[in-house]
């Protein structure tokens, strides 16, 4: 028996591509352990972390369905590899198509969940963590809509005050015209409609803003706020629920329905921003990995019947890793 008959093989007893994939997965393990571990540590160190599903809008059933979908896709990938080893490329192809559909379904459910969070104002850096911030959050949105309303007017000027002065001047000029052109008639109607809205919006905003700033109940009228402030007498305090009731009255008024209809009132959530940041960061990073996995499935399908079992195995290793990450994320995010 000579050395030539049995050449010495250097390195680990696995194909280079599989070794490469495992080394890559090693780096991924370190990355996700850091993410998940940090998530756990932050949560343990934050007494009062939001867990109520009515507050966080986390739906355990959405997470459970997504878990089944990923588990099923993992099963399909391993079946695809098994079928290729049995020289059954058509069955393998069907299994990969199934895994691809599962991955797309996972992302679809995830995006519906993300949409729900956005609709409820669960966005990092945008969540009020106490009642003052919650009121400020509503006022900030109202102010932004006022800014947009003024910016949309067909008058000159960069700043809000300049544009409002221009509106008043333009209205005076248009009304003074004895025979206005059709374009001027339209302009007049637009500006008059704006003035009606603005005259309702501005005092309502100032009323909300000043009561929120002074933390004084709406039982004290707006006109008396200055006196209460100056005399430094005690006044009934303002609660967030009272503020929301007053805002809803303003929002429901006929003149302002179209302007304030989509203002999101977010209840204060202690540690809400840390929760939202970690939630979107960890699940978002996982979703990016799912997308990469789907691209790998597309490569397998594009390759056709000639695709090697080793390539499918390597893609499968990656996909199973994505599945393992979700196995830990599901209880951490949806249950605990």
């Amino acid at each position: 028996m000579t050395a030539a008959a049995h050449p010495v093989r250097m390195g680990l007893p696995i194909p280079n591509s599989k070794l490469g994939m495992w080394l890559f997965l090693g780096t991924e393990i370190m990355l996700f352990t850091a993410f998940i571990g940090t998530f756990i540590v932050l949560r343990l160190g934050s007494r009062g972390w939001p867990t109520d599903p009515h507050v966080t809008h986390i739906n355990v059933w959405a997470g459970a369905i997504n878990t089944f979908i990923l588990l099923f896709s993992s099963y399909l990938v391993v079946v695809a590899h098994d079928k290729l080893l049995q020289n059954k490329p058509s069955a393998a192809r069907l299994a990969i198509i199934g895994a691809l559909v599962c991955g797309l379904a996972f992302l679809g459910i995830k995006s519906v969940e993300y949409r729900g969070k956005f609709d409820h104002g669960i966005i990092p850096g945008r969540i009020p963590e106490n009642e003052s911030q919650a009121m400020e959050n509503v006022l900030r949105q109202v102010d932004a809509r006022m800014e947009r309303l003024v910016a949309s007017l067909p008058v000159e000027g960069d700043k809000r005050d300049v544009r409002l002065t221009a509106v008043d001047q333009e209205l005076l000029d248009l009304k003074a015209k004895s025979e206005p052109t059709p374009a001027e008639v339209i302009q007049l109607k637009t500006l008059e409609s704006f003035k009606t809205t603005w005259d309702a919006l501005l005092p309502a905003y100032l009323n909300l803003r000043d009561h929120a700033r002074d933390k004084i109940s709406f039982t004290v009228p707006f006109a008396e706020l200055e006196n209460v402030r100056a005399s430094q007498t005690s006044a009934p305090p303002l609660s967030f629920s009272e503020f929301v009731d007053e805002f809803e009255k303003v929002r429901q008024s006929d003149a302002l329905k179209g302007v304030l209809g989509n203002v999101v009132v977010t209840q204060p959530i202690v540690y809400g921003n840390l929760f939202a940041s970690t939630y979107f960061f960890v699940t978002g990073f996982h979703a990016i990995h799912v997308i990469v996995g789907l691209l790998l499935f597309l490569i397998i399908l594009a390759w056709g019947p000639g695709c090697s079992a080793l390539f499918v195995e390597n893609c499968g290793l990656y996909w199973h890793f994505v599945d393992v990450v979700w196995i830990f994320l599901f209880p951490l995010i949806y249950i605990l």
Partner: peptide, 24 residues
């Protein structure tokens, strides 16, 4: 050989943070 050191290093970040953030 491949996964042992990886898991050890992976545990280091949460382990290092835990004392300061969660267990004081």
């Amino acid at each position: 050989l491949l996964l042992g050191p990886t898991l050890l290093l992976a545990a280091s970040v949460p382990f290092a943070l835990a004392a300061d953030l969660a267990f004081h």
